[in-house]
Design a protein around this nucleic acid. Structure first.
Length: 1035
RNA sequence: GGGCGGUUAGCUCAGCGGUAGAGCACUACGUUGACAUCGUAGUGGCCACUGGUUCGAUCCCAGUACCGCCCA
C-alpha cells in the first residue's frame, strides 16, 4: 500500500505511544550498553491537580530530547516522573469541589476525614497531567512515577512508597543537628487560607492607596520648636508644636504601635528623641526613638512602629527592644480574645515601665480597644480614621470654598489624605492582602546550610546555564533569610514534633522528704497551675513512640508518682491540660500511680511543600535506603526548569541534598524563561491569550509543537510562541514524510535494512550528501552537548529541507535512470534513515512511524543507535564540486527569471571559457545541471553570441543565447546590479588590504583569505564587464 | 531603590571581532517523475544612540535612551 500524502498525527500518535509503553522502551536502563555512562533527569514535579500548560510542554520537551538522545547513545538512562502534592493549591481545589457539591466544610468533617477527601481528589486529578505528558511524547519511566506524599499516614492503597518517611527522617535529622528551630517571628500570613506562606509565595503589586497623617501629642503637654530648612540651610518654617506628625498607609495598625521612630540625623526631631507621646485612641504612652530606618525626606520623617504587623517595623522593634503587640486574629480581623482592654492596657503600661515579661505574654495581650474588637482589618481602618478625625488629631489643611449660591467664601479644615501608589503584598494563591503576623513557626536555619550550596556552584561541581542564572543564585543565597517551613494546613507532611506540659521539678515541694508526693502536695500543683502558663516543652522524632521515650526521660526527674506517668497522645493543648488535671484528680482519690498519664499532642502544622520537593532527587530514588538506583543515578545529570523556580526549588534542593547526603543533586541546571505569546505577553486567562498545548497537538501534532519548542530554546532567550511557526514545523514534518514517500515510489526501501555505515558511493552527488549527513550529525550532537536545542533544530531543518529535499532528491531523479541507480538508492535510504534518527529526539512520532514503514528494522527507532560518523566522510573535493554545481544552477535560474524567460522553456547554454576543473565538474554532473537549470544543450565557442545573457562561474563563463528574446535594457540592469554588489565587496576588500596596518597585524590566514577572495570577485566582475560591453555594442 | 537581561529585515528570533542570516509575512511566476502543509526567483537592514579599544566593531568596553523580568 503506497504511503499517504501526509502523516496523520492524530491517528498515529496514540498508537505509537502505546507501542513504546508496551515495549517498556522508556524503562530505566532500557537500551543501555555496557561501558556507557548513566544519564538521569528528574522531572520538575507538576502540581498533582494541575493540567499541562505551555510552560510544562516546553520544559518537558527539552528533557525528553536529552533523554531520548542519551538513550539512543546507549547510556543507562532514567527520566524520573512524578507529581507534587502542592499543599495550598490541592487543599484549595478540594475545598472548592466540596463546596460545589454542597458538602460540609473541612472544619465540619475534621482533619482525618478531610485528608481522605484530598487523597480522593489527588487520585482523580493525577491521571490528567500524566496523560498529557504522555501525549507530548515524554519518555519517562512511567512505572516509577513518584509522589511527594507517598506513604504518608492515611494514604490509600496504591499510594504506598517511601517519600513521606524520607521527608520525616530529614526533618528529624536536621532538627537534631540544630538546622531546624522553632521560633516566634514575623511571617507572611494569608488570612484567607489562615496559614503562613513563604516570601516567594507573596506577590507585591502596586495598587492605588492612601497616606494618612496623624498627630501624636507629646506627653505632659510638652512643646518644642519645629524648624524646617531648605537645601541652603535657610529656615523655611518655624513653629511651636505639641505633637509629632506621622504618616501611614495602614492606620488600623496604630493601635499596636510601640514607638515613633525618627532618623538620628534628623535635626527637626532631635529635641524630642527620648520623650513620650500619647498614642491616640489608646491609653498608652510610647517613646520617640532614633533609628536608621526612617527616611527623613519621606513624609514627615517620623514613622510609627508596629512591630507585630510590618517587616521594617519589626526590625526597628527588635533593635529598640520594643514589645510587639499582635492586633489581629488568623482571619485578619481585629482580635477579640483575651482579657478586657482595660486589663490588657494596664499590664502593657507596666511592661512599658520595665516590668519583666515574656514573648508569650506580650503575644497574649490584646491591646485592641473594645470598640474595634472583632472588626475586619479594613473596617477597623475606616473606624480609626473617623475617630482620629473626630478628636482632631488628623493633620489638616485649609480649604477655601465658595458657596455656589451666595458666592460667599469661607475656609474649612480638611484632613490631609494623599492618594498614593503603594506596594501591597498579595497571596499568590488566595489573592488577598497578606498580613505580616507574629506567630510561632518552624524554620530551617539556612545560614548554616547555605555554604556548601554556594561552593558547589563556585567550584563548578554544579553548573547553571545560562550563566546569568548563577549570578541570580549567588545573589539570593548570599542574602538568604531563614526559611519558614511550617504551614497551617491539613494537607501535607505533619511536623514530627510533640508537645507536653512543662512540669518542672522546681514546682514541687516534697514537704515530707519521702521522694513521693502526697495528696496535699499534688493539690498544690493543681491549684497553682504554673504549668498552664508556661510554654510547652517539645520533642522531635519520627514517631510518637520515639518522642514518648524522650518525654519519659523528662518525667524521670520528677518526684513519684509523676515519674511513672504513662505518656499518651491527645488532640491538642487544651485536651492535654484537661486530661492531666483529671488524671491528677483521679490519682488523689485512687492513689493508683499506674493510672497517672502525661498527655502529649502533636504539632498540627504541616511542612511547606517545597521542603518535600526539596528532597525530590533522593526521595524518588528510594533514599534513605541505599537502593541500586540511588547508586547509579545520583547525582542526577541535568535539571531543566524555569528560572522563576531557582529560589523556590533549585537552591533549596542544592542546600537540602548537600545537607542530607553531602552531594549535589545535579551536575547541570538548565534554566529557561516563561513561555509567552507571539507578542511576548505573559499568557493569562484574563488576557485570553493562553495557548493550550493540547489544542496545538490536536491541530498540528506533538512533533510540530516539540520542534517549535526546541527551535525557540536559545540560551537565555525570550520564549515567544507563535502558531504560525508551529504550522511551519508541521510542514517540515510533511516535507520529510514526502521525501520518504518519493523514495518509496522509487524503490529505495526495497530490500533495505538499517545500516550504520554509508554505502560505497562513486557518484559525486552521493559522496557529497553522505558528507553533508556526517556534518549535520556532528553539528547536532555538538549542539545538544551544549544544550543548544535551537541550533540542533536549526541544523536539522536546514539539512533535511535545504540539503536533502531541495537538492539531493532533485539530483537523484535523473540518477535513478542511469548506471548509478543502485548506489543512489542505497545512499538515499541511508541518508533518510539518518534524517529519521537525528530528528527522533525532537520529532519522535513521525520518525518512529516512518521508521516502521520503511526498510527492515531490528529495533524500534527509539532504541536505534545515535550515529557517530567519521569525519573522513566529509569529502572536500565532492563538497567543492557540488557547491560549484548548485551555485551555477542558482545563477542560471536567477538570470532566467530576471530576464523573464518562461519557466518551462528549455534553453541552450554556451560556454565561452572553461578551466579543466570546471569542465570536469560539468561533465560529472551534466544531467543534474541540465535538468534543474532547464538547459537543453551545452556547446563550446570562443565568443559569446550577440544578445546573450551571461553567467559567470568559478573557472567558467557561460552565455545563454536569447537572440531577440531578451530585453537588452533589462539584462544591462541585471548585470549592473550584480556588478554594483561585486564593486562594493571589492571596494571593502581592497580598502582593507591597502591599509598597511592590516597586513601587519591581522593573522596570516585572514589576509590570505582576503586576497583570494578579492581575486575571485575581480575575476567575476571582469567577466560581467565583458558581457556588459557586448550588450552596449548591440544595444 | 537593588539585581539580571534585552534593543539586528514588516513580525518572531539566530549570529557576537574579519563580505549582515533564518522562519513567517510580502511580491512575481509556476500542475517541472515526493510534497500547494509545495516549488522557483525576488523585495526588505545607519545591527537603538554616543564615545572608546582595535588594522578592522552588529559583536569587546564605557555611557545614554527605551523595553522586559526578578527582588525590595
Amino acid at each position: 500500500m503506497p504511503m499517504e500524502k501526509t502523516f496523520n498525527a492524530a491517528e498515529a500518535e496514540a498508537r505509537i505511544s502505546a507501542l513504546w509503553l508496551e515495549a517498556k522502551a522508556f524503562a530505566a536502563g532500557a537500551n543501555a550498553k555496557p561501558g556507557r555512562p548513566a544519564f538521569s533527569v528528574m522531572i520538575p514535579p507538576p502540581n498533582v491537580t494541575g493540567s499541562l500548560h505551555m510552560g510544562h510542554a516546553f520544559n518537558n520537551t527539552l528533557q525528553d530530547i536529552l533523554t531520548r538522545w542519551h538513550r539512543m547513545q546507549g547510556d543507562d538512562t532514567l527520566w524520573q516522573p512524578g507529581t507534587d502534592h502542592a499543599g495550598i493549591a490541592t487543599q484549595m481545589v478540594t475545598e472548592r469541589e466540596m463546596a460545589k457539591a454542597g458538602e460540609p466544610s473541612r472544619r465540619d468533617i475534621g482533619r482525618d476525614a478531610f485528608t481522605l477527601k484530598v487523597w480522593e481528589q489527588k487520585q482523580k486529578s493525577r491521571g490528567t497531567i500524566i496523560g498529557q505528558l504522555q501525549r507530548l511524547g515524554a519518555s519517562c519511566d512511567w512505572d516509577r512515577e513518584a509522589f511527594t506524599m507517598s506513604g504518608a499516614p492515611g494514604a490509600p492503597q496504591g499510594e504506598e512508597g517511601n517519600f513521606h518517611d524520607a521527608v520525616i527522617k530529614v526533618f528529624v535529622d536536621m532538627y537534631h543537628k540544630g538546622l531546624i528551630y522553632r521560633g516566634k517571628r514575623l511571617v507572611n500570613w494569608d488570612p484567607h487560607f489562615e496559614t503562613a506562606i513563604s516570601d516567594l509565595e507573596v506577590e507585591n503589586i502596586e495598587v492605588a492607596g492612601h497616606m494618612w497623617h496623624f498627630k501624636y501629642r507629646l506627653a505632659g503637654g510638652e512643646t518644642y520648636d519645629y524648624v524646617e530648612k531648605d537645601a541652603e540651610g535657610q529656615v523655611t518654617l518655624r513653629e511651636t508644636r505639641d505633637y509629632i506628625s506621622i504618616a501611614t498607609t495602614r492606620p488600623e495598625t496604630m493601635l499596636g504601635d510601640g514607638a515613633v521612630a525618627v532618623h538620628p540625623s534628623d535635626e527637626r526631631y532631635a529635641p524630642i528623641v527620648g520623650k513620650m507621646v500619647h498614642l491616640p485612641l489608646c491609653d498608652r504612652l510610647i517613646p520617640i526613638i532614633a533609628d536608621e530606618y526612617p527616611d527623613p525626606t519621606f513624609g514627615s520623617g517620623a514613622v510609627k512602629i508596629t512591630g507585630a504587623h510590618d517587616f521594617n517595623d519589626y526590625g526597628v522593634a527588635k533593635r529598640a527592644n520594643l514589645p510587639c503587640y499582635r492586633l489581629m486574629d488568623t482571619r485578619g480581623a481585629m482580635r477579640a480574645d483575651g482579657a478586657p482592654y482595660e486589663q490588657a492596657v494596664a499590664r502593657a503600661r507596666e511592661i512599658a515601665a520595665g516590668s519583666p515579661t515574656t514573648e508569650a505574654e506580650v503575644d497574649s495581650l490584646n491591646l485592641v480597644p473594645e470598640k474595634y474588637r472583632g472588626m475586619d482589618r479594613f473596617e477597623a481602618r475606616k473606624a480609626v480614621i473617623a475617630d482620629i478625625n473626630a478628636i482632631g488629631l488628623a493633620v489638616t489643611t485649609l480649604i477655601k470654598e465658595t458657596d455656589p449660591e451666595t458666592g460667599s467664601e469661607h475656609l474649612r479644615l480638611e484632613p490631609v489624605v494623599e492618594a498614593k501608589k503603594i506596594m501591597q503584598p498579595f497571596g499568590d494563591r488566595s489573592k488577598v492582602v497578606i498580613e505580616p503576623m507574629l506567630t510561632d513557626q518552624w524554620f530551617v536555619d539556612t545560614a548554616k546550610i547555605v555554604e556548601p550550596a554556594l561552593d558547589a556552584v563556585r567550584t563548578g561541581k554544579t553548573t547553571i546555564i545560562p550563566e546569568s542564572g548563577e549570578k541570580t543564585y549567588f545573589h539570593w543565597l548570599e542574602n538568604i533569610e531563614p526559611w519558614c517551613i511550617s504551614r497551617q494546613l491539613w494537607w501535607g507532611h505533619q511536623i514530627p514534633v510533640w508537645y507536653g506540659l512543662s512540669i518542672d521539678a522546681a514546682d514541687f515541694v516534697d514537704a515530707e522528704g519521702d521522694n513521693a508526693l502526697d495528696q496535699v502536695e499534688l493539690l498544690t500543683i493543681l491549684g497553682d497551675g504554673g504549668y498552664i502558663d508556661r510554654e510547652s516543652r517539645f520533642h522531635c522524632a519520627a514517631t510518637q513512640d520515639g518522642v514518648a521515650e524522650r518525654f519519659r526521660d523528662d518525667l524521670a526527674a520528677l518526684p513519684h508518682p509523676l515519674n511513672t506517668a504513662r505518656v499518651v497522645e491527645v488532640a491538642d493543648r487544651q485536651t492535654a491540660v484537661e486530661t492531666f488535671a483529671a488524671a491528677l484528680a483521679d490519682y488523689t482519690l485512687s492513689q493508683d500511680p499506674t493510672q497517672l498519664v502525661y498527655p502529649v499532642w502533636r504539632d498540627p502544622d504541616v511542612l511547606d511543600t517545597w521542603f518535600s520537593s526539596g528532597l525530590w532527587p533522593i526521595g524518588t530514588l528510594g533514599w534513605p535506603e541505599q537502593t541500586p538506583e540511588l547508586q547509579k543515578y545520583f547525582p542526577t545529570s541535568t535539571l531543566i526548569t524555569g528560572q522563576d523556580i531557582i529560589f523556590f526549588w533549585v537552591a533549596r534542593m542544592m542546600m537540602m541534598q548537600l545537607a542530607v547526603v553531602e552531594d549535589v543533586p545535579f551536575k547541570t541546571v538548565y534554566l529557561h524563561g516563561l513561555v509567552r505569546d507571539a507578542k511576548g505577553k505573559k499568557m493569562s486567562k484574563s488576557l485570553g491569550n493562553v495557548i493550550d498545548p493540547l489544542e496545538i497537538i490536536d491541530d498540528y501534532g506533538a512533533d510540530a509543537l516539540r520542534f517549535a519548542n526546541a527551535a525557540m530554546a536559545s540560551l537565555g532567550g525570550v520564549l515567544k510562541l507563535d502558531t504560525a511557526r508551529i504550522a511551519g514545523y508541521r510542514n517540515f514534518g510533511t516535507k520529510l514524510w514526502n521525501a520518504c514517500r518519493f523514495a518509496e515510489m522509487n524503490g529505495v526501501w526495497e530490500g533495505h535494512s538499517t545500516q550504520s555505515a554509508p554505502p560505497q558511493a562513486s557518484a559525486t552527488v552521493n559522496k557529497w550528501i553522505i558528507g553533508e549527513t556526517a556534518k549535520a550529525a556532528a553539528e547536532v550532537s555538538e549542539a545538544l552537548e551544549n544544550y543548544r536545542f535551537d541550533q540542533a533544530a536549526d541544523t536539522l531543518y536546514k539539512f533535511v529541507w535545504g540539503k536533502v529535499c531541495d537538492w539531493y532528491v532533485e539530483f537523484a531523479k535523473p540518477l535513478f535512470d542511469g548506471e548509478q541507480a543502485g548506489e543512489t538508492r542505497e545512499t538515499m535510504a541511508w541518508v533518510l534513515d539518518h534524517c529519521m534518527i537525528l530528528l527522533h529526539p525532537m520529532m519522535p512520532f513521525i520518525t518512529e512511524e516512518l521508521w516502521s514503514t520503511t526498510g527492515t528494522r531490528a529495533k524500534l527507532l527509539v532504541h536505534t543507535d545515535w550515529p557517530d560518523l567519521p569525519s573522513h566522510l566529509i569529502d572536500a573535493p565532492s563538497m567543492a564540486e557540488m557547491t560549484w554545481v548548485t551555485t551555477l544552477i542558482d545563477d542560471i535560474r536567477s538570470a532566467r527569471t530576471q530576464v523573464h524567460v518562461p519557466a518551462g522553456l528549455k534553453l541552450d547554454l554556451v560556454a565561452t571559457a572553461m578551466t579543466d576543473a570546471a569542465q570536469t565538474a560539468w561533465t560529472q554532473n551534466e544531467p543534474l545541471i541540465k535538468r534543474l537549470a532547464r538547459i537543453e544543450t551545452l556547446t563550446r565557442t570562443d565568443t559569446a553570441p550577440k544578445g546573450a545573457i551571461t553567467v559567470a562561474a568559478e573557472g567558467a563563463t557561460f552565455a545563454i543565447p536569447l537572440d531577440g528574446v531578451i530585453d537588452i535594457a533589462e539584462e544591462k540592469a541585471r548585470l549592473q546590479k550584480t556588478l554594483d554588489k561585486l564593486g562594493k565587496e571589492i571596494g571593502g576588500l581592497k580598502g582593507r588590504l591597502n591599509t598597511p596596518a592590516f597586513a601587519a597585524s591581522a593573522p596570516e590566514e585572514v589576509v590570505e583569505e582576503c586576497r583570494t577572495n578579492l581575486a575571485a570577485r575581480e575575476d567575476e566582475a571582469s567577466k560581467l564587464r565583458a558581457a556588459m560591453a557586448r550588450l552596449v555594442e548591440i544595444g
